[in-house]
């Protein structure tokens, strides 16, 4: 192997983990993205946050970027594996509609991290993405940097079972991998979070504890019960949502304006995002059950369908309320 290394990134000093977050946030803020906060419910990916899942629906343009810790119970390795994390950090970017130069803009964002694409092997490899629990899929690439997968690049086509118009582009950076690459360390726990604190200092214990729970302590029966409860609560709320009965409304526009506006009002007050949170809870519990190997092939299909049903109903209501929200804005 050659002596390592005379890389230009040494000149500026390798970026710390937090400096990377700053650089990417600044870069995308300059592209007109709102820099949102991480979501506070467990998610398997940044895609599942409402800032993506809901905002890609409907016609309004939207640009957002945020850091999102994402939990995948099955990937837990008790903090022992140098590359594998139960909770990893994504930088999630949504551009709706996608700019025509989006691939170039993305490559420029790598430049912002000090990666000079003239000296690296960057590939866009076909990789179409699908999230069955969200009724979402898209067409895209995984971006490889010298053989390392660093970003998922997706043109969304559907979310919550709804065809998107316009479509969005989603960029999901795997930050730990990029950090280990930039800092040239073999073990993710050795990544410097800042000048004095390592990634291991920040996260190792958490990895261990969650791994123990997800693989050993989680009671499968309790998790199933919780999933049922969250689902039932979501279903109860959905039942209470006052649906548009457009025909009846058309028939009685003059007779009962008060009734219609009260429907609209209670539609606007409907706790849709809570229903969605409950749906996310179900999805996470599904992942825990899956990590325990407690789900069979057929049951998996049925459970995915249950979560997807919630997600699809949420998107339908979100879209139904859209015109009213616009009018009131």
């Amino acid at each position: 192997m050659p002596p390592r290394d005379k890389s230009p990134r040494k000149v500026a000093g390798p970026l710390t983990f937090q400096a990377m977050l700053f650089r990417l946030s600044e870069f995308w803020a300059r592209q007109g993205c709102v820099i949102a906060l991480p979501y506070d419910v467990e998610v398997g990916a940044g895609t599942m946050c409402p800032e993506t899942f809901l905002r890609v629906l409907g016609p309004e343009p939207w640009r957002v970027a945020y850091v999102q810790p994402s939990r995948r119970p099955a990937d837990g390795r008790y903090g022992e594996n140098p590359n594998r994390l139960l909770k990893h950090t994504q930088m999630q970017v949504i551009l709706k509609p996608p700019p025509e130069r989006i691939q170039d803009v993305y490559l420029e964002s790598l430049g912002a991290l000090g990666i000079d694409i003239r000296h690296h092997d960057i590939r866009f490899e076909e990789d179409n993405w699908e999230a069955p629990t969200l009724g979402a899929w898209g067409i895209g690439w995984q971006v490889m940097l010298d053989g390392l997968e660093i970003t998922q690049f997706t043109y969304f086509q559907q979310s919550g079972g709804v065809d998107l118009e316009p479509i969005s582009v989603e960029l999901t950076y795997g930050l730990e991998r990029i950090a280990a690459f930039l800092q040239n360390v073999e073990d993710v726990y050795e990544v410097r979070w800042n000048e004095t604190v390592t990634y291991g200092d920040m996260r190792r214990t958490e990895e261990l504890e969650f791994s123990v729970y997800d693989f050993e302590s989680a009671g499968a029966a309790t998790c199933r019960k919780l999933l049922d409860l969250y689902e039932a609560e979501a279903a109860r709320l959905l039942d209470e949502y006052p649906r548009n009965r457009s025909e009846e409304q058309d028939k009685a526009p003059k007779r009962d304006v008060a009734m219609i506006s009260s429907i609209t009002l209670s539609q606007q007050r409907f706790p849709l995002r809570k229903v969605y949170d409950l749906c996310l809870k179900c999805s996470h519990l599904f992942n825990i059950l899956d990590a325990r190997g407690a789900i069979s092939v057929t049951e998996r299909v049925a459970l995915i369908a249950r979560v997807r049903k919630l997600a699809c109903e949420v998107s339908a209501i979100y879209l139904e309320r859209q015109p009213a929200a616009e009018a009131s804005a």
Binding site: M1, P2, R4, D5, K6, S7, H119, H120, D121, L145, D146, G147, L148, F181, N184, E186
Partner: peptide, 10 residues
């Protein structure tokens, strides 16, 4: 610069 080989090897 040998950077790419280094990356793939890593």
């Amino acid at each position: 610069r040998g950077l790419i080989r280094q990356g793939h090897e890593r």
